[in-house]
Design a protein around this nucleic acid. Structure first.
Lengths: 140, 140
DNA sequence: CTCTGTGCAAAGCGTTTGCAAACGA
DNA sequence: TCGTTTGCAAACGCTTTGCACAGAG
């Protein structure tokens, strides 16, 4: 289990219950929208305000604790900063799956950086498609 | 030059002046936000309504004439449907550059499709990083 | 001529803001 | 205790909607 308090203090943020629960919620689900975070955390912390969630998400993205994952036609989701990985974003259900960087992605990465003079951010490689679950749903 | 009227009729949409100008504007710039489209088209067509731009963008995305390109922390941009390519999205200025699919990307693509059971949409491979122009600006 | 598309203005909503009270360190 | 954070409620601004008129086919 991750120590959210340390994570926050490392970024000069006070470890409030609200922030701890927001981080825990995101960590458990992988990727969450602001609405979903609020709805989950408010269950165990009924006095929580939506405005507090907004303020903290914005703050934690600025501080580099969270990363925003934009999603075509939908609201963005947020995840904890973690080791480099690729996002597979389902255009049907909006779910985001993580995949490790593989050899091909690394080759793509270095070719972009060196040949194209474009400094790629490792943690933001988002590929859009249809997940296995939604492929089944369409087939049925 | 593209025949926007044919493009529209092929999607069962009437070729109005508003739609023609919207498509022309996007085509000339490559990728544009709704605001930018409105501000450009309203110059030559002063009676244009912002609502009309919204309605048409939504419609043309549904009809497959346009593609939405989501951008971290910013409003989405729109482009004409075109041959497969990769988007390099600058996290500083928000500019989007197109790059052809190269060997590495194809390898990535097929590995995702076959090994991962994820049906990748070819036209939505968005890589986030810092463009050459913004790298210079930071260095100075 | 008919049906679709446009422009306007109002409504709707998600997001942001200001401030007094509560809280963490 | 002191500066930060929270919750509330109002304000904001982008987006959507309904409707009468204009325009494309």
């Amino acid at each position: 289990m991750t120590d959210y308090a340390k994570l926050l203090k490392a970024s000069e943020l006070k470890a409030t219950f609200q922030r701890m629960h927001i981080l825990e919620s995101i960590d458990n689900h992988g990727h969450m929208s602001i609405d979903a975070i609020y709805e989950e955390v408010v269950k165990t912390h009924p006095s929580l305000s939506l405005a507090t969630v907004y303020k903290n998400i914005i703050l934690m993205v600025e501080k580099g604790v969270l990363v925003e994952v934009p999603i075509t036609g939908k609201k963005p989701k947020y995840e904890l900063v973690k080791d480099d990985h690729i996002h597979l974003v389902c255009t049907e259900c909006g779910e985001v799956e993580d995949r490790p960087h593989n050899i091909n992605a690394d080759a793509l990465f270095s070719s972009m950086t060196k040949d194209e003079n474009f400094s790629l951010s490792k943690q933001q490689i988002n590929l859009y498609g249809v997940c296995a679950h939604c492929q089944e749903a369409v087939a049925s």
